[in-house]
Design a protein around this nucleic acid. Structure first.
Lengths: 358, 358
DNA sequence: GTTGTTGCCGAAACCGGTTTCGGAAACTCA
DNA sequence: TGAGTTTCCGAAACCGGTTTCGGCAACAAC
């Protein structure tokens, strides 16, 4: 039927509008619109007739024509800051897939922009929201003091955080309890006999970094181990910094037998450092990290780490944002998930000699 | 000034419309619109007055309100199929950054969707274009017989290919001359004394796979080497298949001393296979691949490969698509770039013993 | 048999822009 | 000075939907 209509117009095919449908059924376009949008004042008979005719004619409303009256374009905004350390780059595709899935489930789409700096990010948020290319935003990689939040809150634009933040009042968010993973890592190592367990924190400023450090401390506490400030290294989010942090730890008079890393990427540096020190990872030095990036399974021995279901995160965030944009109370739009431990070869029982502590 | 206007309205701030600007200047909204859009029948004085007032009042046109009349939403569509082998996942972020940059340069945005299958892709292309969420599409990973092309061509929707295809008549595209890279790889190896150079092709069906195979053949030809069908392995796009292909090649009575891989990911499998055969890569077995994915620098020895500037590709494609959507002739929207060789440790002179050919 | 209700749809305004058309004022030229 | 141009803006239609309002017909209640 749609094909028939199309074929009558040679060359550039004209799009089917709501008026075409109305004319076809001898109704007004207002009635067709109400029928299609489930208004109560349309009889079931008419609703069915309209729906069928719309299908047959291949009518699909223009989203921007709807938006002009409704004010909503049914689109999720996402501004990615790409100058960050690229430990999360491999996840971008998965994350997009998740968001896209969650969006299309409600018949929304996804508008993506990339920024080079924080200023750039803020500029884009304003522009996209002012031009109404999106109805709200997902904010990835939340920081403790996040200017995006202040801006959008003040701007009256809905948003959802991927990660908690300093002041979450009035904020909707989704997060993974990475602090629990860090605690779990310490407990596992402690159970394997490790007594000197070091920690290499993640990027300063980011909420996750604080939380994971807390989780590490909590783990020591629950394992009955005391906190040694010397065992908390400088933050590292890439291979090089991770290597340096490991070197520093290994140079300690009472060196650690295990290191917990806030991010996988930094843990890779420990492989380099261990090689230089002639230490075998998993035997002489135990490593547990966090993120579960693909490369973590390729190193030798494979890195024990906590994997995040990034795709699911995207899907949940999309769902939360749509509900937020529809007016739901942000306080009720909060979800917390767990990371999954990948038990691999980079950690093992504490070496005998090292257990002799002063 | 903008702040002043906003502050007069307590609570939900009203957006500044074109009528507000018109009223402020005692003009009609038609005049304001024409002034802002550079119509010739507006005096320079008025144009300036309007532009200034618009800035002061913080006026930003709603893109969907413009679209209803112009028919254009100023958005680039991108449908990513995520179930493919993930050798290209690391590049997604870069690619998006490029497209986003190219788009925002012309004040366009980017609409992204992900699909699980080819059917899904086609469905999304139709939906996004019918609802007019995008004015045209960038089609990544072109196949020899690409249904997306047929569909969009028939549908009358502008598009640009990332990669050439079987029948490019009427198509705009951007591509990297990866066939030249393959030729170059063979010539390099030949210059190092290699006489038996094998090839592991990429994913069948994709245009790049055909082209790279051609490039390999061309390289042999120019090096004065004959083509031995036994040296062309089964296609491989991931580590496992790459390992298998390498095994098969190494089991040949007259085994190759060098292997050229169409994709990096497959070349990683050769590291596994070489280990099993007790061969040292770069000495006993030379490897050159293509893609330049980040992991290629982490393997030992680092993989010699050809790097693609994915970000630039995205930027160029965005530019081409926008011009295409504005009505430019597709035949004139074609660009070809070169890959950059990363001369690393996975290849070297041919081993002496192996040079004795029958 | 009147008087509410209720169900259901038509008519028209409306959203915020763009584009067409026509005409007044200013300018040019004979 | 008058006719023809040109310049520049107002008025209004238009884009394709959504939403409000009012009223007719059918039905129920008294």
């Amino acid at each position: 039927m749609a094909g028939l209509v199309k074929s009558t117009v040679v060359g550039t095919r004209r799009r089917v509008t709501i008026s075409d449908v109305a004319r076809y059924l001898d109704l007004t376009k207002g009635t067709v619109s109400r029928a299609l949008n489930g208004y109560a004042d349309i009889s079931e008979t008419t609703r069915l007739r309209v729906r069928r005719a719309a299908d047959q004619l291949g009518y699909r409303p223009l989203s921007h024509a709807q938006a002009i009256r409704t004010g909503r374009v049914r689109s999720i905004g996402l501004v990615l800051q790409v100058n960050e350390h690229d430990g999360h780059r491999p996840f971008v595709a998965d994350f997009l897939a998740g968001v896209s899935e969650g969006a299309s489930r409600e018949d929304w789409t996804l508008t993506v922009a990339t920024a080079e700096s924080e200023e750039d990010t803020l500029r884009l948020l304003e522009k996209i929201s002012d031009e109404r290319k999106a109805d709200g935003f997902i904010l990835p990689r939340t920081q403790v003091a996040d200017r995006r939040i202040d801006f959008l809150r003040d701007h009256g634009t809905p948003f959802v955080l991927y990660g908690r933040t300093g002041n979450t009042s009035g904020c909707a968010w989704y997060d993974i309890q990475s602090e629990d993973a860090m605690t779990d890592a310490v407990l596992r190592l402690s159970a394997l006999g490790h007594r000197r367990i070091a920690f290499v924190p993640g990027g300063p400023g980011y909420t996750y970094a604080e939380l994971r450090l807390d989780g590490y401390r909590d783990g020591l506490d629950r394992a009955g181990l005391s906190i040694d400030p010397a065992l908390i290294a400088q933050p590292a989010v890439d291979r090089e910094a991770g290597g340096l942090a490991t070197e520093t730890l290994l140079d300690l008079p009472d060196r650690p037998t295990a290191i917990v890393f806030a991010v996988d990427q930094a843990a890779f540096g420990a492989y380099d450092a261990a090689r230089r020190h002639g230490l075998k990872i998993g035997r002489d030095l135990s490593l547990i990290a966090y993120d579960g990036i693909p490369e973590s399974s390729f190193v030798d021995p494979p890195l024990s780490t906590y994997a995040v279901d990034t795709r699911k995160a995207g899907e949940r965030l999309a769902d939360l944002l749509i509900r937020r944009a529809r007016g739901a109370d942000p306080e009720e739009l909060r979800e917390l998930d767990k990371a999954r431990f990948l038990n691999r070869g980079s950690h093992g029982p504490a070496p005998r000699g090292a257990q002799i502590s002063p």
